[in-house]
C-alpha cells in the first residue's frame, strides 16, 4: 500500500481585496499540479479560484474595522482524494445555515457568493475556533 501524498499550504496575507488574485491563482496552480486527478483540471482550477475568492471576500467583509486584524489566514489541505480549504476571519461571525439560496427571479446585486461555494464544493461549514471563525470547504476529488 503506497503512502498517500499530502499537500498542505498555509498562507497569511494582509486582509485586503488586492490579495484575492494572488490566493485565487495559487489555488489554480494547486489544481493543475494534483497527482492522479482524472477530472477536468481546468474546471477544478477555476472553481478553487472562485470559492477561495468568494470566501476571502466574505471574510474581509465580515471583519469590522474595530476587529479587523491586519492579516488573513488561509489553509489548503489535500490528502488523497480529500481537499479542504479553510478561510479564517476575526469578525463577529454569521449563521451559514440562515443564508438562503438566491432568488433567481429577483435581480439582487448581492447574495450569490455562498451559493456559488455551496454549488461547487461538497461540504461547507462555518464555526468558531480558538483562532477565530473559519469557513471550511471540502471537496472529494474524482
Amino acid at each position: 500500500m503506497s503512502a498517500q501524498s499530502v499537500i498542505q499550504l498555509e498562507i497569511v496575507v494582509p486582509n485586503e481585496t488586492r490579495y484575492l488574485s494572488l490566493i485565487g491563482n495559487l489555488a489554480e496552480v494547486v489544481a493543475k499540479t494534483l497527482e492522479n486527478y482524472t477530472g477536468d483540471r481546468e474546471a477544478l482550477a477555476y472553481h478553487l479560484n472562485l470559492v477561495l475568492t468568494e470566501a476571502m471576500a466574505n471574510a474581509i467583509e465580515h471583519s469590522p474595522p474595530s476587529n479587523n486584524g491586519p492579516m488573513m489566514r488561509v489553509c489548503i489541505y489535500i490528502e488523497g482524494k480529500d481537499l479542504h480549504i479553510l478561510v479564517y476571519d476575526q469578525g463577529r461571525g454569521f449563521d451559514l445555515e440562515s443564508i438562503p439560496a438566491p432568488d433567481f427571479e429577483a435581480l439582487n446585486e448581492r447574495g450569490r457568493g455562498i451559493f456559488l461555494i455551496r454549488s461547487l464544493m461538497d461540504d461547507v461549514s462555518y464555526r468558531k475556533t480558538e483562532c477565530g471563525n473559519v469557513l471550511e470547504m471540502h471537496k472529494k476529488l474524482g
Binding site: 472562485l50 468568494e54 435581480l107 446585486e109 448581492r110 451559493f115 456559488l116
Partner: peptide
C-alpha cells in the same frame, strides 16, 4: 477570464 459574484453584481447593476 475570471469573474466572481461581485463582478456579476456590478454587471447586474
Amino acid at each position: 477570464r475570471f469573474i466572481d459574484s461581485s463582478g456579476l453584481g456590478a454587471l447586474l447593476s
